[in-house]
Design a protein around this nucleic acid. Structure first.
Ligand SMILES: [Mn+2]
Ligand SMILES: [Mn+2]
Ligand SMILES: [Mn+2]
Ligand SMILES: [Mn+2]
Lengths: 220, 220
DNA sequence: TTAAATTTTTAGGTAAATCTAAAAAAAATA
DNA sequence: TATTTTTTTTAGATTTACCTAAAAATTTAA
């Protein structure tokens, strides 16, 4: 069994590995809010334990064992987030920090029964997929709102930024999961996007549009 | 905020202080499954932080601050136990170890909403009282079954031993919370007790009888 | 009330996870 | 290609929570 710290490293390396092949020391340090020297120490340890492959100066890649361990933590994180929102009436912007703690509770029985209690949810309050107990989950194929063209429409099915400030902002604009949107116009001046949502026309900044994930109507 | 280790020390000192005025170093070491020398280190630290009063060679006593901190942990532990039994269908002998981890999750909002979700329970699956959010709880006045005399009767309202082995044994004998019992006889030979429960007559060992808590009929 | 037993503390050390400062390697740029 | 910049690693410390062995204080018993 791994320490909390090891689990946090594994989860972060796993997420970084979704975008790059070789995960860099500095990238890990930034995510872990620690120093590169500390990361070097830890990745040696994780490599010794067989969670990652590590070649000096070349960054790290996850092994099968490491990926499984990381997915297990992600599963727990997302299930707890569903619990907090569905059962304890937390808002979607309030759950992340608590889930960061709850994800480290070690009990297979607990997480399986929680999964069942929640009705085996497929996605968390931010639209992210929840791996099943075998670590399997549908690889979601979303389009960023910013990439849509005028006239395109779709459903909000996820966000790629989990900060409380961002989520609260979306909430205020009515941009919540499941809502239908259509692109009306893209402003030349600042790249902001004019969309129609719930029969109202609103303008959202480029920065916001970058982090909203859309599934096109008709598919998915 | 305290570390997990500090919280565990506080909780154990709090429980030991229920039976003695000055809690001894060795008693803490035994409960913490650690060495007396380690305890000395930690109690100095807890004294520095104002959680306990400590005089060399005299043992420790809890301060108001320490008691409040400990009660808060006990509250969390017991609420999580209720959650596990009431919502996730754990048995009463399966919850303790998981609750030992969950009790350290730091979020006031979480525990208050959990309390509400559970319907503000007054006692946990083992009959122990749950402090409210201000740390107040009814001091339960139970009698040990072993202390009852022939002919006495009452209701099982608690246990003073939380090991899985003991609780499973009680379950098998049908000795669960809320059950009515009456003392039929006490065996001279081994001190075992013959009781009537659910219209059946069974014999329980002295050791078992010591750890079952009864509230007399009529009161409580 | 001295001697023996028990309890508690001190002294000195270890392992995990962090840090700073400086050296080494790799990548980018001129 | 040589130089500069960036990335990564090493070396050496620090902090927390432990440990063992030995000394000191307290309690119990003779
Ligand atoms: Mn999250
Ligand atoms: Mn999430
Ligand atoms: Mn318990
Ligand atoms: Mn309990």
């Amino acid at each position: 069994m791994q320490s909390f710290t090891e689990e946090n490293y594994l989860k972060i390396i796993y997420h970084l590995a979704e975008n790059t092949n070789n995960v860099q020391t500095n990238a890990i340090a930034e995510q872990m809010q620690t120093k590169p020297a500390s990361v070097t120490d830890m990745i040696k340890k994780l490599a010794d334990k067989g969670f990652i492959d590590y070649v000096k100066y070349q960054g790290v890649t996850m092994t099968e064992k490491g990926r499984n361990a990381a997915i297990d933590i992600v599963r727990k994180h997302r299930l707890w987030e569903v619990f907090l929102v569905d059962k304890l009436n937390f808002k979607w912007d309030e759950v992340h920090d608590v889930a960061e703690e709850l994800e480290h509770i070690k009990s297979t029985a607990l997480i399986e029964r929680l999964d069942e209690f929640l009705g085996f949810p497929k996605s968390d309050p931010h639209g992210d997929p929840i791996p099943d107990k075998n670590g399997r989950f549908a690889k979601t194929q979303f389009t960023k709102l910013i990439e849509l063209k005028i006239g395109d429409s779709g459903t909000i099915t996820g966000v790629s930024q989990h900060s409380s400030a961002f989520l609260k902002h979306l909430e205020k604009l009515g941009l919540t999961l499941g809502k239908q949107i259509q692109i009306n116009d893209v402003t030349d001046f600042d790249g902001s996007v004019e969309i129609v949502i719930s029969d109202k026309q609103i303008n959202i900044s480029r920065e916001v549009a970058k982090h909203i994930l859309i599934s096109s109507n008709g598919k998915n």
